[in-house]
Simulated assay, not measured.
Amino acid sequence: MPTYHARVFVTLKPSILDPQGRTVERALSHLDHANVAGVRVGKYIELTLSGEREAVEAQLADITGNVLSNPIMEDARWELSEVESVGA
């Protein structure tokens, strides 16, 4: 059964204020990085799943949209790559 490595990226929608991103931006400015703007902070999650690719993709879409993110406030995307078997 194939094994897959998933990377999930969750960010606040552009219309949602990001106080954490704003705090990081202010801190960077105070550290002489005044040319940095538009800082947004998000989440990065890694998962390992096994099964047939089509089923894994459907499962990952469900997990991403219903568990790892709030679709009202956040955008989420994922990347999936097959893990090569060792000794196969």
Rank of each mutant, 00 (worst) to 15 (best):
I63H: 06
S69Q: 08
T48I: 14
S85W: 07
S50P: 00
D75K: 08
M73N: 11
T48H: 12
A6I: 04
I63S: 07
G51I: 04
S81W: 09
I63Y: 04
L12W: 00
V41H: 07
W78F: 14
S85I: 10
R77D: 00
V39E: 00
L49R: 10
V8T: 04
E57Q: 12
V41F: 08
V10I: 15
L28H: 06
S29P: 02
P2K: 02
N35M: 11
E82H: 00
L60Q: 09
M73I: 15
N66R: 13
V83L: 15
S50K: 06
L68R: 03
E74S: 03
T23P: 10
L68T: 09
N70S: 10
L60T: 09
I16A: 10
V86D: 03
T48E: 15
I16D: 01
E46Y: 10
L60N: 09
S15E: 13
T48A: 12
D18F: 07
E74M: 06
L47F: 02
V83M: 09
H30C: 09
R7N: 11
D18C: 07
E82K: 11
R77C: 09
A76Q: 10
D32E: 07
S81P: 00
A27R: 00
E54N: 04
V39R: 03
S85K: 13
D75S: 15
R53A: 05
S50A: 14
S15L: 07
H5E: 13
V24E: 01
Y44A: 14
L80P: 03
Q59W: 08
A58E: 12
S29L: 06
E57M: 06
H33A: 13
A34E: 13
Q59Y: 02
H5F: 12
W78A: 04
M1G: 11
S85A: 15
T3E: 12
S50H: 11
I45W: 00
A34W: 01
S69T: 05
I72R: 13
L60M: 08
V36P: 01
N35K: 14
G21Y: 00
H33D: 03
V36T: 14
R53I: 05
S69K: 11
P19R: 13
L49P: 01
L31V: 04
K43G: 08
T23D: 08
A37P: 01
E84Y: 02
A76H: 07
V8F: 06
A27W: 00
Y4A: 01
L80F: 08
G51W: 01
L31F: 12
G38H: 05
N66G: 06
Q59D: 15
L68G: 06
A88H: 14
L80N: 09
Q20I: 00
L68I: 07
Q59T: 15
R40I: 03
E54Q: 12
L28A: 12
H30T: 14
D62Q: 14
P19N: 11
N70T: 06
L49W: 10
A37Q: 13
G87T: 15
A58L: 08
